[in-house]
């Protein structure tokens, strides 16, 4: 056996089936990850959209944030098996995306919010005039909300999602549950003060 043959003998001894088996198992894993991802889209796209809309208040921006969330998951799909609570994990991803986008986006005029809300929010049983008044009211509330400190505002916004418990809000914001409770208490007090002040 020549030197070259000796060097490559290790390669020659690897059975072809082992390589194929390895590649096949990775392909199977990839397919499994993509199946999980597709299931996550079907199950949580709507929730993520609502969370995104609550911050961005724009339909196309919210949809874009949802797509960005799932793209990030696709790029890190190897982690899917390690995630304990996929719903909270996804909400945390979309939450960070929308907060980041909101920080970078220019402040839109309040009239845009009013128009968007009048178009999007449910107004069953309201006359056209009442619908316009309701949209004004919602825009005013959201204007007061923007005056809250970020920590209190974020807790208040997430608390509106009935499907999120205090523990889950704490997990999304990476704080303790008691912090969620205290921030929520402060947020409600501040909000009441702002609304009362505006009425006077």
């Amino acid at each position: 056996m020549s030197t070259t043959e000796a060097v490559f003998s290790g390669w020659m001894e690897i059975p072809e089936s082992a390589v194929q088996e390895r590649a096949r198992s990775h392909a199977d894993q990839t397919r499994a990850d993509e199946d999980i991802l597709a299931a996550l889209v079907s199950q949580y796209a709507a929730t993520l959209y609502r969370v995104a809309f609550s911050v961005l208040r724009n339909t196309s921006d919210a949809e874009d944030a949802v797509q960005e969330t799932f793209l990030r998951v696709l790029r890190r799909r190897e982690m899917l098996g390690e995630v304990r609570d996929q719903r909270v994990w996804l909400i945390r991803i979309v939450w960070n995306i929308v907060l980041d986008r909101k920080r970078r986006a220019k402040t839109r005029p309040e009239t845009d919010d009013v128009a968007d809300l009048a178009r999007v929010l449910p107004a069953d049983g309201l006359s056209a005039e009442a619908r316009a008044v309701a949209a004004q009211h919602h825009a005013h509330v959201l204007g007061c909300l923007e005056q809250l400190p970020a920590k209190e505002r974020e807790v208040l916004m997430l608390s509106a999602f009935e499907e999120l418990s205090g523990v889950e809000i704490a997990s999304v914001l990476n704080i303790t549950e008691s912090s969620v409770r205290s921030r929520l208490f402060r947020a409600r007090n501040l909000m009441a003060g702002l609304l009362n002040h505006a009425r006077q």
């Binding site: 609502r50 809309f53 609550s54 208040r57 999007v120 929010l121 449910p122 009211h137 919602h138 509330v141 959201l142 007061c144 909300l145 208040l156 916004m157 608390s159 509106a160 999602f161 009935e162 409600r188 909000m191 009441a192 609304l195």
Partner: peptide
């Protein structure tokens, strides 16, 4: 205030 947020959360 919270009713508005709940409406948004159910959009």
């Amino acid at each position: 205030a919270e009713e508005t947020l709940r409406l948004i959360a159910r959009i």
